[in-house]
Write a protein that binds this DNA or RNA. Structure first.
Lengths: 246, 246
DNA sequence: CGACGTGTTGAGTGTGATCAACATCTGTGG
DNA sequence: CCACAGATGTTGATCACACTCAACACGTCG
């Protein structure tokens, strides 16, 4: 397994390739062998719209995005967050239609793979396909914990869980220097993730700050005591395995 | 594509094969080529325990099961339900450890595939692997709607959503003759799925019954007006594509 | 028979929602 | 430079949806 990045088509230091181990051949040519394009978007931009026929699979190369869906009267639920190296819209590529929207939270760079490319990957590089599915399984394992949080944790426990989770995901990506989130997370985001009102979230975050577990700055959060948050939430964290390649 | 079931190793009328299109060769030999065993369990039996190292992938051949996880003090959250043809523990097989428990709700029959078999399937039958992943993606797409329900719908809307969902999943499997669920769903199940107390669920179900949308019998539910439930929940249902093969 | 699981109902409580007002800060246009 | 709108955050007052505690009815099963 030689590693001469100079020989690759492009995408040096790709965060996706850093998390998906490819076959030797694809490692040489890069995951971009299956890539059909690249997109840069500003903060707040919509990436995918609920209900759209979206045959593309995206990989988040830079920035933070979030998936969400809404009821007819506007009540919104945030389903999850994506960090560099995550895939977006795998389900859409597999099933043809997106059942949720995706928005860019910060400025983002997306790599685009079309549906045909995904099929080709399954046929020609089973190892890469397996790795992509494994990666997707990791991302989706968080959904279960979110469900537990919204359903059974109190507002305080739930907020503690979410902020600890975001910290654990942001830190390895370099997006939480000194505990400070490097992306504009608003209290509205937190409220829509936990299924609570923004007023109640404001008071809950204040309590977390009084407990010296976090601090809330303008459009951002500082994690002061992750262990304390985990303890309060009754959660063990993502675990070592989550961040390992493959 | 000949279909001579007599030539197959076993598993006639397998509900999994009915939903996953295999390559001609595997179609002939059956999905059981990758199968390592078969398990029959009674109602209420535990299938997988949270935290267990479970390298097996299961396919539910008969019956109904549910996934759940709990907080330290016993608060329980049901994450989802599995019907015949669904895969269970795909994430566990991919990642090595189960982060949730699975219990049999009725008597069930499980087909067992080990981790190695899954790997072999990726390598030797990309089409089957793609189909399995597609099938899993469909099952998991329900998680998003559950999250929206628990987070943003009122108790009445949420209960209407859940009962409509279960009906839409049970009916094609023949588990809802005349709208009557053929598996023992208790009000405790409903409460733990929606993150509500059992007392409140009891009153909510009573309201749904007064609206003539459902009726509640002993350990079971009768759907009287699915369209009314969907309308109340503000949900369009699973859609045709969900039940299609492939 | 008693124990247990399930379903039902009443009464009192509380977490979290709603309504409302205001403080900042940003960007925009006059 | 100011006026203004919009997004975000903050706080108080009131309300209600859902929780807790409690008791009881009914069935099954040992």
């Amino acid at each position: 397994m030689d590693d001469r990045p100079a020989e690759r088509n492009g995408c040096p230091d790709c965060p996706i390739e850093g998390r998906v181990r490819l076959s030797p051949e694809n490692h040489r040519f890069g995951l971009d062998r299956f890539k059909t394009g690249e997109i840069d978007l500003g903060a707040g931009a919509g990436i995918v719209l609920e209900g759209a026929r979206e045959p593309n699979l995206f990989a988040l190369a830079r920035g933070v995005a979030f998936r969400h869906k809404s009821l007819a009267d506007g009540r919104r639920q945030i389903l999850g967050y994506a960090f560099p190296g995550d895939f977006l819209g795998l389900r859409g590529a597999l099933l043809g239609e997106m059942q949720h929207s995706i928005d860019a939270m910060s400025a983002v760079r997306l790599c685009v793979f079309d549906r045909a490319g995904l099929l080709r990957m399954f046929a020609t590089d089973p190892g890469a396909a397996y790795a992509v599915v494994r990666r997707a399984a990791k991302d989706e394992s968080i959904l279960d914990e979110n469900l537990l949080s919204i359903g059974r944790r109190t507002a305080l426990e739930s907020a503690a869980y979410l902020l600890a989770l975001l910290h654990q995901r942001a830190r390895p990506a370099g997006l939480a220097p000194e505990g400070r989130f490097a992306f504009p997370l608003t209290q509205q985001h937190v409220a829509d993730t936990l299924g609570l009102s923004i007023v109640h979230i404001n008071r809950t975050l204040k309590r977390l700050a009084e407990l010296e577990l976090i601090a809330w700055l303008d459009r951002g959060c500082v994690i002061r005591d992750e262990a304390g948050l985990l303890d309060l939430a009754g959660w063990t964290g993502l675990g070592e395995a989550f961040h390992q390649v493959g």
